[in-house]
Each structure stands twice: as structure tokens, then as C-alpha cells.
């Protein structure tokens, strides 16, 4: 079985059938691009993978662990859902940075909140072991200081990865769109997701700013990260992907290597799609 195996995803919004039995496999370290015209269900598929939507039917297995199955009646508790979500990172089309926090705080916020949870647990454990209050407090404070430093260090090294070390104390409103998206990527990476997903990461950007974001994504590929990218950038998809799927009307119409999809497309819908896209690029 593949590293990430999605089987038979179905999703309706009212009368509209958005996903009609989608199957996707991604191997570890592989980059999968999802292409297709608007309304083909690409984004919905990505949102289902990230537990922002619940598929009506289907199942998902990651790294041998079943994360979702519509056969199971029991609904996940909030805590279970959060844990499952953390297997994935998601970079949004519109960045969704937190405007009131600096760049570095945007990155450290979620890890710090997780650390606080961990500290609460650790405190309880120590209490159970009968460690006295003051002793407990000293040990917790030491632990907290070390971990906080680690989180900070990790955030700075991520900022280096995306080339924004000098912007660490800036607020999102002071950054360009491309810089915002790079921060968003660093923020998603800070939680060490097994699979990093991108939802049209360059669609909200001015054309001259897409390059810097695409370069960062490409550098992540060189670190063998497993990634799923919904994109309209055909050249980029061709360049960076190990596999490409073409979606149309809620189904996967063609699946293959970039060569197969872009050089030897078989499906007529895909052929038509590629010709309209390349016409646009030439125009």
C-alpha cells in the first residue's frame, strides 16, 4: 500500500456532486500535483485530506494508519481530529497569516500552544509521582525554557529555508504577497507534517512574485518532503512533480508522470485543457 492512500472519496454539497469516487496514492518523498479547471474538485479533495471537510464516503490511510473511513460510525472527538490533522500541513491560496503577530510569532504560535499542553501533562505526571510544588516548578520552568528556545531556533531555521530571516520581526501587512506565502510555508513546516499540501499557492500573487514561492517549494522537494500541490502553474507542475493527476468534474481522469500527462495526454478532456492553458500562456 502506498504511503498515502485515498480510496473512493465522495463528497456532495447539496445537489452538487463535487467528488465522485476519487482515488489517489502518494509515495513517501513524492510530489503529487493536482491540475484541472476550476470547479473540478481539486480544492475540495485537498480540504478533505486536511479534515476541513468530511467526505461522504471513502477512506484514507497514511503510513499504515487509517485516518478516515466512512464505514466507521463513531465520530472523532475534537482531540482525535486535531491529532489527525497534524499529519498534514496546508498552505492556503490566501496565506491566512495571523495579522496581529509578527512573522516569527506566526510560526511559533502553534508549537508553543502544543508545548503548553505538554507542560500541563508533565506537571500532572510529576504531581502523581509526588514531586513537591517548588521542585516541580523549577523542573517545569527549566524544561519550558529549553523547549521554547528550541521552538524559536526551529522557527529561525525555517525562515532561513524560505529566505526571510531579515523579516522575522515584521508584521504580515508589511510583507509582499510572495513573502507572506513563504511565511505561511514556514508556519506549516513548523509542525513537522508528514504531508505538506498546497492549495493554489501562487494564485493570489502578482505574476512577478510567483517565482520566489515556487523556488521555495522546489527546494522542499530536494529535502524529500511528501507534498500534494493543487496548482494552475503547468510549467511548475511539469518541473517539480513526480506524479500528476488531472481532475475533471469530480473525477480523476488521468494519472501519470509529468511526461505522460503533459507530453502524451490520452484523455480528450485533458488534451483540451492543456491546449487552452498553453494558449493562455502564449497569449
Amino acid at each position: 500500500m502506498a504511503y498515502l492512500q485515498i480510496t473512493d472519496f465522495y463528497k456532495d454539497f447539496g445537489d452538487v456532486k463535487v467528488l465522485k469516487g476519487v482515488n489517489v496514492q502518494v509515495e513517501k518523498g513524492e510530489v503529487l500535483s493536482i491540475i484541472g479547471s476550476s470547479g473540478s474538485g481539486k480544492t475540495t479533495l485537498l480540504r478533505c485530506i486536511n479534515f476541513l471537510e468530511t467526505p461522504d464516503k471513502g477512506s484514507m490511510v497514511l503510513d499504515g494508519q487509517e485516518l478516515f473511513s466512512s464505514d466507521i460510525e463513531k465520530k472523532d472527538t475534537d482531540a482525535e481530529l486535531r491529532e489527525k490533522r497534524l499529519n498534514f500541513g496546508l498552505v492556503f491560496q490566501s496565506f491566512n497569516l495571523f495579522p496581529q503577530y509578527t512573522v516569527v510569532k506566526n510560526i511559533t504560535l502553534a508549537p508553543t500552544l502544543q508545548l503548553n499542553d505538554k507542560i500541563r501533562q508533565k506537571n500532572l505526571e510529576l504531581k502523581k509521582q509526588g514531586v513537591k510544588f517548588f521542585e516541580r516548578r523549577t523542573r517545569i520552568n527549566e524544561y519550558k525554557a529549553i523547549k521554547k528556545q528550541e521552538i524559536e531556533k526551529e522557527a529561525l531555521s525555517l525562515l532561513e529555508t524560505v529566505g526571510l530571516t531579515d523579516k522575522k520581526d515584521a508584521y504580515p501587512c508589511e510583507l509582499s504577497g510572495g513573502q507572506c506565502q513563504r511565511v505561511a510555508i514556514a508556519r506549516a513546516l513548523a509542525l513537522k507534517p508528514k504531508v505538506l499540501c498546497f492549495d493554489e499557492p501562487t494564485s493570489a500573487l502578482d505574476p512577478e512574485l510567483t517565482g520566489e514561492v515556487l523556488r521555495v517549494i522546489k527546494s522542499l522537494k530536494n529535502q524529500d518532503r511528501t507534498m500534494i500541490i493543487v496548482t494552475h502553474e503547468m510549467g511548475f507542475a511539469k518541473n517539480v512533480s513526480d506524479k500528476v493527476v488531472f481532475m475533471s468534474e469530480g473525477e480523476i481522469v488521468e494519472y501519470g508522470t509529468p511526461e505522460q500527462i503533459f507530453t502524451n495526454p490520452k484523455n480528450p478532456t485533458l488534451k483540451h485543457f492543456l491546449s487552452t492553458v498553453s494558449n493562455k500562456e502564449e497569449a
Binding site: N50, F51, L52, D78, R82, E83, R85, L86, F88, G89, L90, F92, S94, N96, L97, F98, L109, A110, L113, Q114, R187, A188, L191
Partner: peptide
């Protein structure tokens, strides 16, 4: 407040109250 702010929090594993 845009829905995206809530969703960003969700995918970062935050609880509703966080």
C-alpha cells in the same frame, strides 16, 4: 473575521478555544 483565520488555526492543530 474571514473563515480562513479559523481554518488556519484548525490546520495548525489548535483547539476551538485557542
Amino acid at each position: 473575521i474571514s473563515k480562513g483565520q479559523y481554518e488556519a488555526g484548525k490546520v495548525l492543530g489548535m483547539t476551538k478555544s485557542q
